[in-house]
Design a protein around this nucleic acid. Structure first.
Lengths: 347, 347
DNA sequence: AGTCAGAATCTCAGCGCTAACATGTTTTCA
DNA sequence: TGAAAACATGTTAGCGCTGAGATTCTGACT
């Protein structure tokens, strides 16, 4: 019955091509905007009947809250800033996958930036992410420019630094001790009876963790009275191809080694490929050990002996810890997700 | 000299722990907020001297614009919604890498969602991304729920559907014809003299493109009077391990084939591993052909014969095309990024 | 000197939502 | 039975920015 004259403000339904707002929902459900807002955010007490009415109106209009408005009003947003060094290496997508897994069922969304291992780029990304007043920022490692560190510390946003735990975090660190992982590699190889151990690595100027593993490896060896008898580092970032080339170079130089420790699995798989192509028996002619525990290593004709870094768990754990405590705590916290040796058939 | 009494409103500098706003910058630079806004967005005429003064104030305060406020006021935001089916497969991170590359130098940021190949999940993600009024939404393929399609079409946001071009896009499609790629595989194998060709694939209920390649393969073969002599599809998603198992199963069933066409490189690399472990010579005992052109395939002792899908280019091209035209055009557009055969040593 | 276009800037009203507080309405329990 | 506590809602004032339309100020050209 709306024949009794034109109603004064019948804009309870938005005109076509106009996106419905809280106000539309409120009018249709005959409650205040604030009540609708509280229903949506599930905040404060709501009478069951009211909730029903509001939800019906939301469905009827196909209302979707405007996040920008919400963020502005509450000066915080359901965004998780995620800063990754690279997307070329499967390791970081796996961390992202963990982050995403931890976000399922929440209304948070990851907003990403890729640094290409440049601290200056990281700084720019941090500043542009902070402009969204995100709930948290997740980045990698402990190395940041001074300005970046100041921004991170100065913001009230929660900060997670992933992968590494060998230093003091700003707020939260989740990862593993790469130094310890390196030592574990040394111990494993020595236990297996190898004594002439070589190192094959990639350019680590921007990869602190690879260097930490290298240092751990050296320490581990020296604890048993050994040391590296040969080493080769490429000038390129890690890749399977570089690994293949690097091992070939090391052996071509006449290195007399019975085992090669690689900076990571990509490199080690490349090394394995070289051995196959060159007819070098593994592990009897040469033992190989990697780091990461990538799937590809486990599908080789002989599964690669390596160290499992729980990338997925790192991402997921970080998100869970961050969401658990929205406010930055007084004390920084470190979560060790550990590592484990994968006893393959190559070392 | 600020000793001459307390100034009435000297809040040109924000009090500590208060983030500076446009208003602070404006006061410090002695211009209106709007002028600062125009300097920042580089919009409208600004006197060089004013620009300098404003930029100095911005630097002095370390001002960072509040994106939520900007988005609310302009009802659009520098966000690119990116919806990916999965992060487990390196293919999609590579697309994301392309997207990211196309975004460098702009202030757009990707906000991501992962569907795990579920159309319902895609629909939820679309709705939650639209809540940000993004500049564009990039998703995969042409299959969407009815509601999702309606949301995409109804929004004024630009939409790109990636990977596939074998159908009609909503707005923009960037990718390659998987059907044609399948035909090309058939032609290549036939040209090389193989005639007893088998197919090894993964579960494609959610992977339309794998099915299209399969169909193209069959069509290509039948054009030369041939057809598949054996095929095996796993019930699991594609992986190297599944590929290895699948080829083993197919051969164990006694299939008399001289070449195996795989649904993708992951599967093909797994197949290669099986051959190595089983002592089957490649390609003389069995030829192998994949699809994608992943790095790992090219590092095998014999580089894998495969089809290069330009994942990185797909992402980058899509972004470039989207940013070039902020408004959705009348006519939907298709960009074919093509494919090419990688002549490896396995087929 | 008068007019006018264009450049440079300002004023002002929101964008759609939420925080904080105010108000009214029940329930609880001494 | 009355006061306090708990519940259920409403009212109001922004959050920090941008868009549209003034307004002021130049200089160019009659």
């Amino acid at each position: 019955m709306d024949g009794e004259g034109r109603s004064i403000a019948d804009d309870s339904v938005p005109s076509a091509a106009e996106t419905p707002t809280l106000a539309h929902v409120a009018r249709l459900a005959k409650v205040s905007e604030n009540t609708v807002s509280r229903v949506i955010r599930n905040k404060g007490p709501i009478a069951p009947e009211t909730r029903l009415r509001v939800n019906a109106a939301i469905d009827a209009l196909g209302y979707v809250p405007n996040r920008a408005a919400g963020s502005l009003a509450s000066s915080s947003s359901p965004i998780i800033g995620v800063i990754l060094p690279s997307l070329s290496n499967i390791v970081f997508p796996e961390v992202l996958r963990g982050i995403n897994a931890g976000l399922i069922g929440t209304s948070y969304r990851p907003m990403i930036g890729v640094t290409d291992y440049s601290l200056e780029t990281e700084q720019d990304i941090i500043s542009s992410l902070l402009a969204w007043h995100p709930a948290a920022i997740i980045t990698t490692g402990f190395e940041h420019t001074t300005a970046a560190r100041r921004m991170l510390e100065g913001s009230r946003v929660r900060i997670a630094e992933l992968m590494d735990i060998d230093d003091r975090p700003i707020d939260l660190a989740v990862g593993l001790s790469h130094r310890e992982a390196g030592r574990a590699m040394a111990r494993h190889l020595v236990q297996r009876g190898y004594s002439r151990i070589g190192y094959v690595g990639h350019d680590w100027t921007a990869d602190r963790r690879a260097r930490l593993r290298y240092e751990g490896l050296c320490e581990g060896l020296s604890e048993t009275g050994l040391s590296l008898v040969a080493e080769y580092r490429t000038e390129a970032p890690s890749s399977t191809l570089e690994g293949r080339r690097a091992l070939a170079s090391l052996l071509a130089d006449g290195a007399a080694i019975d085992a090669a420790a690689f900076s990571n699995d990509d490199m080690a798989v490349g090394g394995f490929m070289h051995c196959m192509a060159a007819g070098m028996p593994v592990p009897d002619g040469l033992a190989l050990m990697g780091f990461n525990g990538l799937e590809i290593g486990q599908v080789l004709p002989k599964p690669l002996t390596t160290v499992l870094s729980n990338r997925f768990a790192i991402g997921k754990t970080a998100i869970e810890a961050l969401l658990e405590t929205p406010q930055r705590p007084q004390e920084a916290r470190i979560i060790d997700t550990g590592f484990s040796i994968i006893e393959g058939a190559t070392a």
